[in-house]
Nucleic acid binder design. Structure first.
Lengths: 192, 192
DNA sequence: CTTGTCATGTAAGAGGTTACATGATTCG
DNA sequence: CGAATCATGTAACCTCTTACATGACAAG
């Protein structure tokens, strides 16, 4: 998708400077971009050129001037149209699964160690998400909006929760050698 | 991560041409790249230059010549080192959650329609994954390897399954106006 | 005395995507 | 007769990332 819609969305919540938009994006997991300057500032310029946002320069003493961006009527309409457009499927890039694909090259202990490290990392991440969910800054204009943001946060916690359960299940299955039962005649000779 | 490890992994399973590696990657959800020519062929050249794979040219009558790549000892060692390296967290890019972030701009019916379309798409995808899991081509050199690949496939099915449950829960919550209970005094006036 | 914050911007590059080109063959 | 398969390769482009640059001020 286009990061411009994410920026438009944020500006539909609050008028902000590029610097502040960058912070919102960097701190968020939903807005999954790194929030680097290049992208934010260039896209703000593009949005401005197309009349989707307006720019107000605020001069400050002893601090650099800042440009506060606000969404326009056109911008709001563009955002609305995008909100109504067909949802895309989530894109999941799980490098660990690729690692696991070839993990049969490793010993039983090495695989379990790898899985243990993954479990640990997922566990840490899950705890961080749960803390973050409590103290996050979120738009809270209506009860419905609060509900939506709560469900979005829960979505991500639940994803890690499920991943944790899965990795535990995989380890358990390996420990109990669940895979032995379905032996076949093939042996392990291969024509490599 | 580096797609080169994915390619090395595939070659540790079978010696293949670039064309066939492309097919493996395109058809797979675990190997999440599009599998475009540029990437595959250039990376094979790089792997070859670094001595991680060897190349054997097969001339065919009435079909274009093909280059069969095989993994070398060095390549196998590089793959093994990567397999033992620290797992990365999954990267989830769920554009729908961004859409939902600003969905409070929509009417109740519009939000439900959006969620319904998402539910539909996830449902379709889930069914496709489940069919794919049965008829997929996978390395099957040991019982353990079959187990790992089964668990990887299950991981992805379960991710969609959970997403489906989540979206149904969100819709149900909106229908029952679960968000009303926690009204606050803020009203909906904001300083935009 | 260095590091971090505020605030904008530029530069360079990695990584990935779609599209095009070739040319024989096979399938509907 | 047009489209897909086999098989490799090139070109153009877009997105996103890290790193650098400025300069004043505050905090440890």
């Amino acid at each position: 998708m286009d990061i411009q819609y994410a920026i438009l969305g944020i500006l539909s919540w609050q008028s902000l400077s590029g610097y502040d938009i960058k912070k919102v994006i960097s701190d968020s997991d939903v807005f999954y971009w790194s929030g680097n300057n290049n992208q934010i500032y260039n896209n703000l310029i593009a949005l401005h050129k197309n009349g989707l946002v307006t720019q107000e320069i605020i001069y400050q003493e002893s601090l650099p001037a800042k440009k506060i961006y606000s969404i326009t009527e056109t911008g709001q309409q563009a955002l609305r149209n995008w909100l109504l457009s067909n949802p895309d499927l989530p894109e999941i890039h799980n490098d660990f699964l690729i690692q696991l694909s070839w993990a049969d090259l490793l010993s039983a202990d090495e695989i379990d160690d790898l899985l243990a490290r993954y479990e640990e990392e997922i566990g840490v991440q899950l705890k961080m998400k749960q803390i973050q969910n409590v103290r996050q800054v979120a738009p809270s204009r209506t009860a419905r909006e609060r509900y939506l943001w709560r469900m979005i946060a829960e979505n991500m916690s639940a994803a890690y929760q499920r991943e944790l359960e899965w990795v535990r299940q995989v380890r358990e299955g390996l420990r109990q050698e669940k895979f032995i039962e379905e032996r076949n005649e093939d042996g392990n000779g291969n024509n490599n």
